[in-house]
Design a protein around this nucleic acid. Structure first.
Lengths: 348, 348
DNA sequence: GTGAAAGCGCTAACAC
DNA sequence: GTGTTAGCGCTTTCAC
C-alpha cells in the first residue's frame, strides 16, 4: 500500500493541505514545517499520486505519442526528438504502437486520453472523421497527414516523390513502378498523386503496385511482380520496403542498380548500411517530432484544461497551424542509368 | 470541454450512478434506460474518464514498459510481444524511452506509476536498490536483470557468451576482445563474467574494451582500439555494436571475417541484412515480453490493488518467480578461422 | 503560515 | 432497477 497524503499529514502532525503545499507550492509553507513534512514523506516512501492530482489540476504533464509501427526505424528519431522537446518543457512522453491497425489506434487514443494533456497522432491509419472525433476528447496534433481544422505536421513527400521521379527520368527510365504503402496512409495518397503527375509530365509510364505492408517483408514479396511488370525503376513507399525489394530482386538474380533502380523514402539509418546504399527521399523526422510537441504545448502551456481552469484556454479555437516540412532526395547507389534496351530482364 | 457523467445524467434524466452502471455493468440496468443513456452519451461525445475511474477501482488496465533505447532494434519485438499478450488480457501498453539515462528511468517510473497497473522495467540502468524502492510504489517486473525479491525475466547471455567464446576457440582464436556495453547493464556484467571464465578455460587471452555506448556509433568508435589490441576475434555487447565495429574495421582496411571475426548478441533483424551476415547470440526477446506481461498480470488479474480492494491481493508477498530464458548461438558469416600467424594485421 | 471545506469524475455499497 | 451516500487522493479557495 503506497502511502497517501493523509498518512504523511498524520505522521508529521499537520493538515493534508499543508502536505499538499509542501509538494506543489513549497514557498508557501514554513521552512521548518516543510523539512518535517518532507522527512516524513521520505520515510513513508510517499509520492504524490499524479492521477489524482491531474483530476483536479487538469494537467498530467504527459504527452501521448501514437505510432503505426514501432518496429519501423522511421519512428525512433521522431520519438526521441519529441521526448527531448517534451523534457525541456517538463513533460514526459508515453508511446503506444498500433500495429498499423486503425481500430487499435482508436482504442489507444481513448486509453491515453485522460492520462495525458495531448496526443501526437503519428501516421494515423484511421479516417479523418474519426480523428476529428477523438480530437474532441483530447487535444491532438496530427503528424504525417492533413486533417482540416486540426494542427498538422506534414513532410512534403509529394515534392520528394517528384524529385525522385525526375531523377529517374533523368537517368533515362521510362517504365517506373510505385510500390504503395498501407491503405489509409496520407503519405501514400500524396506520393501516388504527385508521382503520377510527374511520370505523365515526363512522358513515361507508371505501374502502381499496392496497397502493401510497409515493411521489408512487404517489399520483398513484390520482387516477382516487379520483375514481371518489366519496369526498370521503382519508387517504394518507404526505405524498409525498398530494402526488402532489393533483397527479393537479388534472390531472383536481378541486380540493383544495374537491372533495376530502386528509391526509398525516409532515409532511415539502415539505408546507409545496406549494399548498395539506398537512394532515398530524406524526411525531417526529428524536426517533425519537435514541431509537433511545440504545437501541442503552445496553447496549453500553463493554464489548466478542463475542470476549474475552464474558459482560459480549453475551449479556445486554437490557431490550427499546419506545417509542411521539406524533404530532400539523397542520391546514393541504388539508382543508375536505365539498362540498355533489348536486354530483357523480365525473361531472365 | 469533454462531457462528464453528470452531463449525461442530466440529459437522460437519470442519476449519475445509473450512467456509471450503463458503462461498467450494463446488465444491471434496464435495457430501455440503457439505450436512452447510451444515446445521450453518444450525443454529448461522452467517454468515461479512465483516470477518475482508476482512482476508485485501483485498476487502469494499462501497463508501462520502460526501455533503455527505443532506437535499438532489440526492443521492438519485445514491445510487440508484450503488447500482444497485454491485449489478450484487455490491457494497453505505454512505452517510455530512457535514452540509457538512469535518472530519466527513475523519473519515468514515477510518471507512469499511477497511470498503470504495473511497470515492465526493461534492461534498467538504475541501481538495484533504486529498483527495489520504486517497486514499492508500483508492481514491477524486471527484464534483463536479476534483482533479488522481484519477479525477473532474464535471457541467459552468460551461456550465450560461453557458446560464442567456445566457437571462437574452436576456430583457433587465442586473442579475443570483449566489447563492453553500458555501465549499469546486468547483461554486460554477466557476459564479462562468463566470457572471462571461458577464455581462461581455453587457455586464451581476453581484452576488455569498455564501457561503451551500445550503438553502432559506439561499436564503430572502437575499430582503432581493436586493431591496435592485436586480437583476432571480438565478442560485442550487442549486434548494433558488432555491426558498427565491422563498418569501422572496414574503413581501416580490415576485413571480417578474414582478418577479424566478430560476434554480436541479440540477433536483430538487421544482423541478417548486413554483409557479412552476422554471427550472433540469439536472445528470445518476444518470449521475454510475453512472459513479463504474464508475470505482472498473474497475481493481479482481477482484484483491485490499493484503496477499497485492499487485502485481497495487494499486499501479498507475490511469488517472485525468476525466469531464465535460453539463448542460442547462430553462426553466420562474420566468424572464421584465425588468420595465419605472422600476418600482422595490427601493423597493416 | 495553516486548517477547514468543497469538489475533480467517477464507482460501490446500501437502501428502497 | 434506480437513487443516495460516501469517498478514491489530491488541490484550492477561503478563513483565521
Amino acid at each position: 500500500m503506497p502511502a497517501t497524503i493523509r498518512d504523511v499529514a498524520r505522521a508529521s502532525g499537520v493538515h493534508i493541505s499543508t502536505v499538499s503545499r509542501t509538494f506543489s507550492a513549497p514557498h508557501l509553507v514554513n521552512p521548518e514545517t516543510r523539512v518535517r513534512v518532507l522527512a516524513c514523506a521520505e520515510d513513508l516512501g510517499y509520492r504524490p499520486n499524479r492521477a489524482a492530482r491531474a483530476l483536479i489540476t487538469g494537467r498530467t504533464h504527459n504527452i501521448g505519442l501514437i505510432v503505426a509501427d514501432i518496429a519501423n526505424p522511421f519512428f525512433p528519431p521522431l520519438i526521441k526528438a519529441a521526448e527531448g522537446q517534451a523534457r525541456h518543457r517538463d513533460y514526459h512522453v508515453f508511446v503506444a504502437d498500433t500495429n498499423e491497425d486503425p481500430a487499435a489506434e482508436e482504442e489507444l487514443v481513448h486509453a491515453l486520453a485522460k492520462q495525458v494533456d495531448g496526443v501526437l497522432l503519428c501516421s494515423p491509419r484511421m479516417s479523418n472523421s474519426l480523428i476529428e472525433q477523438v480530437s474532441r476528447e483530447v487535444p491532438v496534433v496530427v503528424i504525417n497527414r492533413q486533417v482540416a481544422g486540426l494542427p498538422c505536421v506534414m513532410m512534403d513527400v509529394g515534392q520528394g516523390a517528384r524529385a525522385a521521379i525526375e531523377h529517374l527520368l533523368g537517368l533515362g527510365h521510362r517504365r517506373i513502378a510505385l510500390l504503395g504503402g498501407p491503405r489509409g496512409s496520407w503519405t501514400n495518397r500524396e506520393m501516388r498523386r504527385v508521382a503520377a503527375a510527374a511520370v505523365r509530365a515526363g512522358g513515361a509510364e507508371l505501374t502502381l503496385l499496392g496497397p502493401n505492408q510497409p515493411t521489408e517483408t512487404g517489399g520483398g514479396a513484390l520482387a516477382e511482380q516487379v520483375r514481371r511488370s518489366g519496369v526498370t525503376a521503382v519508387l517504394a513507399y518507404n526505405d524498409l520496403m525498398a530494402i526488402g525489394l532489393i533483397e527479393g530482386l537479388d534472390s531472383l538474380g536481378l541486380r540493383v542498380p544495374q537491372d533495376v533502380s530502386v528509391i526509398g523514402v525516409d532515409d532511415i539509418a539502415l539505408s546507409r548500411l545496406t549494399r548498395p546504399k539506398l537512394t532515398t527521399v530524406a524526411t525531417p523526422t526529428a524536426a517533425a517530432g519537435r514541431t509537433a510537441v511545440d504545437m501541442l504545448l503552445q496553447h496549453d502551456s500553463d493554464a489548466p484544461r478542463g475542470a476549474r481552469g475552464r474558459g482560459a484556454v480549453a475551449g479556445d479555437r486554437r490557431t490550427t497551424a499546419q506545417v509542411m516540412l521539406q524533404t530532400e532526395l539523397v542520391v546514393r547507389d541504388s539508382t543508375g542509368p536505365v539498362p540498355p534496351p533489348g536486354r530483357d530482364v523480365a525473361g531472365a
